[in-house]
């Protein structure tokens, strides 16, 4: 198992390199000159040129990329063109907030969505199923922006019980978590429902019923465990979305998160921030995927076997081939 984890982490390295190259290339060919944006309209062409030189923007593509990679190896993500501060510090300042919020949102989503999905599945076509599915449809299709503002209008302006924006205490988390979770809850509920529906029609469920097990045990022990694999995949995806894609909610609730930071950096052609931010998101994404894969093994012994198998069989092959 440990071998599997190490292998996966090593495999992430080429992926991350690919990400840096892709982002670097895209920004390199995007129109818009960072030096001009920093100095503004009133700067002369000479001043802009001098800043371009200072920022290394006049170097060739290859040289710029190699310099950047060299920095990353030393743990240096470069300097924010606009504030002059190290990008690593700026990202770290925001990462904590973002991860906390994303984790809270995913826990909240799972707590609501999995029970809702199960109930919908075992009471298929009942009133509760229909209501759940309509709500899920709404959750997926309501614009983030609108939902966030409605939450503020209702809880802060009308009821006056929750603070409208910021993140200065536990009560501040409630609305952003709901706002970020809405889409995730809907997606996870629908996935749980369809996955459960597939499983509860299987023969071994019927077998369990014949054995006379309680309905609760059947659902939780037999059905849910088998239905969870696709659900976990979706949860993993939703978590990465919550980390990097909560831009609108961050803006409306005035939360200093990573998503909004990156979007602003793209607008300002703040190359190092975009590159650093995407790299960090890619690392988080890889880790989440790894974690999801490990969860598969934990839930399904067959997958666990596969992980161990593959390492074992390769060893056998190597021995056989005289390696």
């Amino acid at each position: 198992m440990l071998k599997f984890i190490i292998k996966r982490i090593l495999l992430a390295i080429p992926v991350l390199l690919g990400v840096t190259l892709l982002v670097f290339t895209m920004l390199y060919f995007t129109e818009g000159d960072p030096a001009r944006l920093i100095l503004g309209d009133t700067a002369t062409e000479e001043e802009v040129e001098a800043l371009r030189e200072e920022l290394g923007l006049n170097d060739s593509f290859g040289r710029q990329y190699i310099n950047y990679l060299g920095g990353i190896m030393k743990g240096d993500l470069g300097t924010d063109y606009i504030t002059g501060r190290p990008v690593r510090d700026e990202i770290m300042e925001r990462l904590g907030t973002t991860l906390k919020l994303a984790a809270a949102s995913i826990i909240f989503s799972v707590a609501i969505a999995i029970p809702a999905g199960i109930i919908s599945a075992i009471r298929q076509y009942s009133l509760i199923d229909i209501i759940t599915m309509v709500l899920a449809l709404l959750g997926n299709s309501l614009p983030n922006f609108w939902l966030a503002l409605m939450l503020i209008l209702f809880f802060s302006v009308y009821l006056g019980i929750l603070p409208a924006s910021g993140l200065y205490g536990i009560e501040y988390y409630i609305m952003p978590v709901i706002g970020i979770s809405a889409g995730a809850i809907a997606t996870i509920t629908r996935m749980t429902r369809s996955s459960m529906l597939e499983v509860i029609r299987q023969d071994y469920i019927r077998m369990a019923r014949i054995k006379g097990q309680t309905e609760f045990a059947i659902i939780v022990k037999h059905a849910l465990k088998n239905a969870l694999i696709p659900v976990i995949t979706v949860i993993g995806i939703q978590f990465t979305v919550a980390v990097g894609g909560a831009v609108v909610n961050e803006q409306v609730f005035a939360i200093p998160g990573l998503g909004k930071f990156l979007v602003d950096a793209i607008k300002a052609r703040n190359y190092r921030v975009v590159q650093g931010g995407v790299l960090v998101l890619a690392i988080i994404c890889s880790l989440v995927n790894l974690f999801v894969d490990l969860l598969y093994a934990f839930i399904d012994p067959r997958i666990k076997n596969q992980y161990q198998e593959s390492a074992k069989s390769r060893k056998i092959r190597r021995v056989r081939d005289g390696g």
Partner: peptide
């Protein structure tokens, strides 16, 4: 720092 103008006026 509240970038969204709706949020600013609601605050």
């Amino acid at each position: 720092i509240i970038v969204e103008s709706n949020s600013r006026s609601i605050e």
